[in-house]
Design a protein around this nucleic acid. Structure first.
Lengths: 144, 144
DNA sequence: CGTAACTTTCGGAGATTCCTGAAAGTTCAG
DNA sequence: CTGAACTTTCAGGAATCTCCGAAAGTTACG
């Protein structure tokens, strides 16, 4: 399996974001590869070869991506190998997680506001930011 | 300057997010403190005392927060000290940066799509996710 | 200017993270 | 049930990150 130039470019562009996304490069690389690989389904060994990762890293990455709902496993009858592919609703999962994270921030602000005396102008700003963000994102779920 | 229980709770809740936000705990703690501190304006020394940080860490944190547009410096005439306070438009800056990041992801997808042959169903999904995200966020800027 | 008050820079220690490679665990064909 | 193929777990090491503290740099008053 040879990695083409445009695929390599995609891999590096995406894994460069590992720090801002807060994910290990190897996991980002695996997911990026699964977006551009051919064929769509890849075995752990294919991932290992294409990305020059150890078997352990591939296992950790696939486990994590499956748990996050971005990737799904597929077994083929009469084969020991597992295959992985991007889920159709992968991006909905991403959105869901963002909503969750936003909601969490808002609830932190809520909780502390309930305990804090006085004006708390700055805290209220924070809460209304995340509240409106949350609303906007949830509205984005229902396809317009 | 004594840190109250509700303030401490806020500090820990926020700094617990350092890994998912992708920011050092100390910077997050400084920003969190600036949201709940009294008085609103704090000198570097006050930050140092309240958060038990070294002068160097406080300096790094304030520099970073000022550069990110979340915090502003204030000088007082006839005083050597610098004071810091949360900017009124701090959260607009956060939103702006999110839009930027989203737009960047979309443009990565765009660029690679232009170079990739064939169907690229998965890449197009990614692009349209970030494109619609971008649109939604930009709409969120104009206050409803 | 000189000095005192305050802030920033910078080298390095300590902690954490990420990845590898080997060993153990699973799964399926025979 | 046995053995081979494949996957997961885990300890360890390298690289990175984060923070501290001392020294250098700034700023404002006398």
């Amino acid at each position: 399996m040879t990695v083409r130039a445009w695929q390599r470019q995609f891999l590096t562009s995406v894994s460069a974001l590992s720090v801002e996304v807060g994910m290990p490069p190897s996991i980002l690389r695996v997911f990026a590869w699964m977006i551009v690989c051919e064929p769509v389904e890849q075995s752990a060994e294919q991932l290992r070869d294409a990305l020059a990762l150890s078997a352990g890293s591939v296992s950790a990455a696939t486990t994590m991506l499956v748990r996050a709902g971005m990737v799904e496993r597929a077994r083929r009858p009469g084969e020991r190998r597992l295959y992985y592919r991007v889920r159709d609703d992968a991006w909905e999962q991403v959105l869901r997680q963002r909503i969750e994270a936003t909601s969490h921030l808002r609830s932190i602000a809520d909780t502390v506001l309930a305990r804090a005396p006085g004006d708390q102008h700055r805290l209220r700003d924070m809460r209304s930011f995340y509240a409106s963000m949350e609303k906007v994102l949830r509205a984005g779920v229902r396809k317009p």
